[in-house]
């Protein structure tokens, strides 16, 4: 047997498709990849295609059976392994419980040199999972990246960009990366690729084969509980105007006038 190739694990959060594409239900599936992870997936696949990089790209997804379609897509796009982390006792996990479950999954996989997570999910928006996972696994490096440029044996080279500067950084491994770029479009996958992807197996990790302590996951293991959800936006009293341009212009001028009285600033 040849030397084991080290894994890069991409944690993909399934998010409701409606949240991403409000008007079109283009792909007809209830769940889609969180856009940050989609971009990271494309980035990593591209690196693999270029050929120099040797790593096994493992996508893990926590959710119910419906999340399988996301892994199927990731495999079709070029990921090597797909792991569905699913168990009825995982339902209702908050970030403390989720990071515990993901830690167990990563430990079960073994041979992991880097974990990539989107900087946040577009539904929960907490951004806590990568940090918690890094803490639990005891990985020494936690980095922020906008693009992964090169994966070496013991380090990763990546681009970090903010409003003021772009940096090319190198971090030693093992590391957890918060991936900061995202992509809103659906990837186009050829039929041939879909066929190829279908041949790859999706493994199921559950509480038993991961040796999960049931007290530490799901609602039991969670430290936060959502008591109530309220709609924030009360319907506004709307005014709809059609046709009469003059009336519209007057309303705008009046409203602009109100703002002006209160503030006298310099002109930008």
């Amino acid at each position: 047997m040849e030397k084991k190739i080290e894994r890069i694990v991409l944690c993909i959060k399934p998010v409701k498709t409606d949240l991403l594409f409000q008007n079109s239900n283009a792909d007809g599936e209830a769940f889609s990849m969180n856009p940050y992870e989609l971009k990271a997936l494309e980035n990593l696949i591209k690196l693999k295609r270029n050929g120099e990089e040797r790593f096994c790209l493992t996508c893990i997804c926590m959710g119910d059976k419906k999340a399988k379609s996301i892994l199927r897509r990731a495999l079709s796009m070029g990921a090597d392994e797909g792991i569905l982390i699913s168990d009825s006792i995982f339902a209702g996990s908050d970030t403390v419980a989720t990071t515990y479950i993901l830690q167990k999954a990563v430990e079960k996989l073994g041979n992991v040199k880097m974990i990539v997570c989107g900087v946040k999910t577009i539904d929960g928006e907490t951004g806590q999972v990568p940090l918690g996972l890094c803490e639990r696994l005891g990985f020494p490096f936690l980095v922020n990246g906008n693009e992964i440029l090169k994966v070496k044996d013991t380090s990763v080279i990546y681009k970090y960009r903010n409003e003021k500067e772009t940096k090319i950084m190198e971090s030693k491994l093992p590391a957890v990366m918060k991936y900061r770029d995202f992509k809103m479009d659906l990837p186009i996958i050829s039929l041939a690729a879909i066929k190829k992807g279908k041949k790859k197996e999706i493994l199921l990790f559950d509480s038993k084969n991961m040796e999960i302590d049931p007290k530490r996951c799901g609602i039991k293991g969670s430290k936060t509980k959502v008591i109530e959800i309220k709609n924030k936006y009360n319907k506004k009293e709307k005014r709809k105007l059609e046709g009469n341009i003059q009336e519209m212009v007057e309303i705008i001028i009046n409203l602009l006038g109100e703002g002006e009285e209160k503030k006298e600033g310099d002109f930008g």
Binding site: L19, T224, K225, I227, N231, K232
Partner: peptide
Amino acid sequence: FRFMRAAICDSVIAQIHCINC
């Protein structure tokens, strides 16, 4: 303690309570 936070692109407010800790 009880916490309020906005979620799902700021469209809802969730009331959160810490348990088991």
